[in-house]
Each structure stands twice: as structure tokens, then as C-alpha cells.
Design a protein around this nucleic acid. Structure first.
Lengths: 226, 226
DNA sequence: GTCGATAGTGCCACTGAGTGGCATAAGGCA
DNA sequence: TGCCTTATGCCACTCAGTGGCACTATCGAC
């Protein structure tokens, strides 16, 4: 439906679509600002729609919930991630590398200024349980999608015998590392541009193989429970 | 405040506390039934409190939200999990084994009939995005807690050099496996008693060390991004 | 047992998120 | 220009969640 290849968002679209997009962006921008000032819970949607000069009804036609608008930058990223995963062949490359690379690609493909909005969004999510919950849920949905794609993609090549659970564990391990990277990136006190985020990803992903070795040396757990 | 060692819940407590506990249980039981019949979204709190014959105000003094009552069995489990982790020494045993064992202990320690409620709760969470979100958030909070405890516990023994990120990744890896086990256990078509759950856990945890093989051949990811 | 102190509970009014319906305005297209 | 489609605005409504206050039941002391 909406064909966005990461940079045509502002170019030749029908006027209607451009208007919708402009409203959408204004809502995100204003929401992040407003929520950042007053707190997610304290700020009301009425204030937001008043500031952007749209009706509440229009807001809910653009976003599914109050949480949704605050997490828009994150959804953007995962949308690009899934898109890239779908285009990438799985054969001949270790699965973990594929998962990681698509995330680098997605981050690199975000339009200018994205990191500023994303940072604001992350700060809100860290401070607001309800936002954190929505963020985790969305990530879990993306995980399901990616696992499906990966299993299908592996089906045609070598290593097709890999159980879905293993694929899932590997992906979720990478996502844990990603969240760790995010946590450090969004914490105050360091650089918070996109290059710094990539550097944090490098560091976090480097830990993953070490963890796997740690896990592999563990004796079979089946002998452990009472 | 509420000291529950997994079986003294119904014994010698002041009358006031017992009454509160009775109301609490009635709310959970009725809620799971009601939500199961009508769906979480369609059922209203007014119906619930009417059925249990308490005021809505009292409901919110017992549970923080509508989601909370539906996920009560899960919270119970994680409460026991954290408790057990806190009492267990970390030295001399692989970290992954500690994490896994405490989960076995927690599951084994749940009172009779817990698995039935838990199953109902899981079914609801699978069918209801809002519940899934709350479930994931709670699990994430528990994760933070456990990482803190583990890092502190490791501080006094050998292996104190394990970075918090590694501890977190290992724990989340196990939790991924746990969720995989849950998914299969709660899916219709198999046994759904507690022994079957433990068996699913055995199988899922056994996969964890194997995941290493999938990633072992991975070249260092730092060389991969553009 | 009675009597204050101290809870927990019920009731009521209120805010704010989210939805459905319908009239209206604004693109798109001949 | 005029018609058709689609987004928007407005209104009324449901329901989750909160604050305040009166009420009642428990607990401890006498």
C-alpha cells in the first residue's frame, strides 16, 4: 500500500498522500516534544491534537494509540529491517550475520534526523512502563515475522534442517544485544549520533559469540532439575 | 509486606488478610473465566466486579489494571523465581544452569491448580496484544532484577569478571527458550499438566547449547557493516 | 464486652483514551 | 466545470482508571 523505499517519502506522491504524511510527521514531532516536556502520562491527546490542529478523530486514523505515536521512530526502523531481511538471501552466510547485517542496513537507511527522534522516543520508553510494554510487544511481533521469513528462506538452501526454535533463539539473542547497545547509546554522557549507535552495536554484537560459548559449555540442563 | 512462601497463603494470617486474599483469588478465577468466554476486550470490569460482588474501586486496590488480573498466575511464577534466585549461591555453578534451575524450582513450587490458571492466562495473552505487551514488560522488569542480583552474587566469587551485558544475554537466551517451551505447552493437542511443562522446558533448554553451532562459523560482525 | 484507632470498602463524580456514525470539505479525474 | 472518492471534523458514547469522602469491619487495650 504505502511504498516507501527509505527516501521517496517526500518526493512525487499524490497531494493527498503528502498532506497525510505531513500531518503524520507533525504529530510525531509535536508528540515527542510534548511528551518530553510534560511526561507521557501527564500530556493529553487533546493538547496534542490542539497543537497540531487536527481533530482527535484524525489522530486515531493515523495512529492506533497514544503509545503508537511516541514509538513511531522505532516502528520505522523495524519496518525497514523486515523489508531488508525479506530481500536478503539466507544461503551461504551464517544466520547470525544475516540478522545483524540487516539491522545495520536498516539503521543506515533511516532518513536524516531520525536518530534525534529515536533518541527522544527511547527516553520516553525508558521512563514510561506503558511505552516500554508496547515497544517490547512490537519487537516480539517483528521477531515472529522474521523467524517465519528466515525459516522459509533457509528451506531452499543448505541447513534447512535448522529448527525454528533455534532460529528464534539466535534472533532473540541478537535483539538482546541490540537492546543492550541501545541502553548504552541512549544513556546520557556519550555521543548520541548515528555513528555512535553503530559503534555500540559493534561492541554489543561482539559479545554474542562469547555468550554462546559460555552457554555451550554448560552441562545438559536435563540432569539438573529435581 | 506479604510474606508468601508458596503454601502458607491459606493458613494463619489475620482475618483481614485472609479476606483480602479470598477476594483476590475470586477476582483472578472469575476474570480468567469471564475473559475466556467473552474475550479480554469484550468483557468489562463492571461485569467482573458485579460477578465477584466487589466495587470497582476495590478491584483497583487489588490490581493495578485490567491486564494485571489476567496475568496474575504469571506474576506469581516470576515472584517465586526471583525469590529463589536471591537465595541461591552463584559460585561454582555455570550461570546458565543457575538461571534454569531456579525456573524449575519456581514451577515446582506453585500451588496446586496453578497450571490450569496459568494456561488460561497464556491463552488470553496469545490472543490479546495488550496482554502480551504487559506480559513482556513484566518479564523485562524481572530480567533487570535478576541481572542485578546475579551481578552482585558473582561479585564475590570466581568469574566476577563477567560483564553485566553477558549475564543479561545469557538470561534472555534462557527466557527465549522458556517462551518457546511455553508456546508448545500451551498449544492445543498435547498434555497440559505440570509434568508436560517441565518436559517442554527440558527440550527447549537442551536446544540452547546447540544454538552456538549456528553462529560459531560467523565471522566477526564488525567486519560486516558498510 | 466495650470502645477508640485503624484499616479496607462502597459510592459518586470526574478525567481521558478510544470508537462509531454521519455530514462536510477537499483531492482526483473526466 | 461537475462528479466521485476519500479524508476530515464533529458529536455522542463506552469504558478504564482516579480522587475524595463516608461507612463499616477488624484489631488492640482496658
Amino acid at each position: 500500500m504505502v511504498e516507501s523505499k527509505a527516501s521517496d517519502s517526500r518526493s512525487e506522491l499524490p497531494l493527498r498522500e503528502r498532506k497525510k504524511l505531513r500531518t503524520r510527521r507533525a504529530l510525531v514531532e509535536t508528540a515527542l516534544e510534548l511528551f518530553g516536556e510534560k511526561g507521557f502520562g501527564a500530556a493529553t491527546l487533546d493538547e496534542l491534537v490542539e497543537a497540531v490542529e487536527v481533530s482527535k478523530r484524525t489522530f486515531f486514523r493515523t495512529f492506533a494509540s497514544k503509545e503508537d505515536v511516541a514509538l513511531a521512530p522505532e516502528r520505522e526502523l523495524w519496518r525497514a529491517y523486515v523489508e531488508d531481511i525479506g530481500e536478503r538471501p539466507f544461503a551461504g552466510e551464517p544466520l547470525l550475520a544475516v540478522f545483524e547485517r540487516s539491522l545495520y542496513v536498516a539503521v543506515a537507511g533511516m532518513e536524516g534526523g531520525w536518530e534525534r527522534r529515536f533518541l527522544a522516543s527511547r527516553a520516553l520508553a525508558d521512563a514510561t512502563p506503558a511505552l516500554n510494554a508496547h515497544s517490547l510487544r512490537h519487537c516480539a511481533e517483528v521477531t515472529d515475522e522474521v523467524v517465519t521469513i528466515a525459516v522459509a528462506g533457509l528451506g531452499t538452501g543448505p541447513g534447512a534442517d535448522i529448527a525454528p526454535l533455534r532460529v528464534r533463539l539466535l534472533l532473540e539473542l541478537m535483539l538482546s544485544a541490540w537492546r543492550g547497545a541501545l541502553k548504552e547509546w541512549s544513556a546520557p554522557g556519550g555521543e548520541q549520533d548515528r555513528a555512535a549507535l553503530v559503534a555500540r552495536m559493534d561492541a554489543a554484537f561482539a559479545v554474542v559469540p562469547e555468550v554462546l560459548e559460555l552457554a555451550a559449555r554448560t552441562p545438559d540442563s536435563r540432569t539438573l532439575h529435581p
